[in-house]
Simulated assay, not measured.
Amino acid sequence: MILGWTYLVNDEKISAIGRYIRLTLVEKVKEKTGHAEVESLFGWEIAHRSDRRRSLRKIEQLIVDEITFVVSGIIALISFWILVPGAALAIHVLGGVELILLLILGWEILIYADLAKGR
C-alpha cells in the first residue's frame, strides 16, 4: 500500500510537469519569442499524447497498477484472514483499515490514470 501511494504521488507530479509544459510553458515561450512553431521545442510532450496506441497503453498500465498495488494487497489480507483465524482483534482492525486504504488507493489510481488524448 505504501509503495502504491508513493507511485501515485510521483506519477501525478510527472504528469503535472507535462501539463505545465504543454499548457503553460509552450504559450509563454511563444509569447516571449514570437516563434509560432515552438511546439517543435516541446514536441515530445505533445506527440506522445496523440499516439494512436496511447489509449490502449494507458488502460493496460491502469490494470497493471491496480493489480500491483491494490489487488495484491487485498489478496494478502484475505489470505491472512483465512490462514490465521485466531489473530488478535487489533490485527483484524488494522487489516480492515488497510483494506479501506487499499480501496481508496484503487479509486485514486483510477482517477489519476489520465486516459485523455491530445493536449
Rank of each mutant, 00 (worst) to 15 (best):
E108Q: 14
I67V: 15
R49F: 07
H48L: 10
I111N: 13
S50D: 14
W44C: 01
T33A: 04
L105S: 03
G73Q: 02
K30S: 06
Y112D: 04
L8F: 11
I82C: 03
G18F: 05
L105T: 00
V84T: 09
E66I: 11
V29Q: 05
H48M: 04
H35F: 14
L3R: 15
W81D: 01
L102E: 00
H92C: 00
W44G: 08
L56D: 13
L101A: 11
L102I: 08
K58G: 03
M1V: 09
E27K: 14
I91F: 01
I59D: 01
I14R: 13
I21V: 15
W44M: 03
S40C: 03
A113F: 10
V97D: 06
Q61L: 09
I63L: 04
V71Q: 12
T33H: 08
G34A: 10
A90H: 00
K32H: 07
I100M: 04
A16I: 05
V38N: 06
H35T: 00
F80D: 01
P85N: 02
V70R: 05
L110G: 01
A113M: 03
L105P: 01
R19G: 06
E60N: 11
L83M: 12
E98N: 12
L101Q: 05
T6E: 10
L102W: 14
I91A: 07
E39M: 09
L102K: 04
I59Q: 08
G86N: 11
D65R: 03
S15E: 15
Q61A: 10
D114W: 09
L25K: 14
L56Q: 14
R52G: 09
E37I: 00
V70G: 01
L77A: 04
L103K: 07
L101G: 07
T68W: 07
S79W: 05
E66M: 07
L83E: 08
R19P: 05
R52Q: 12
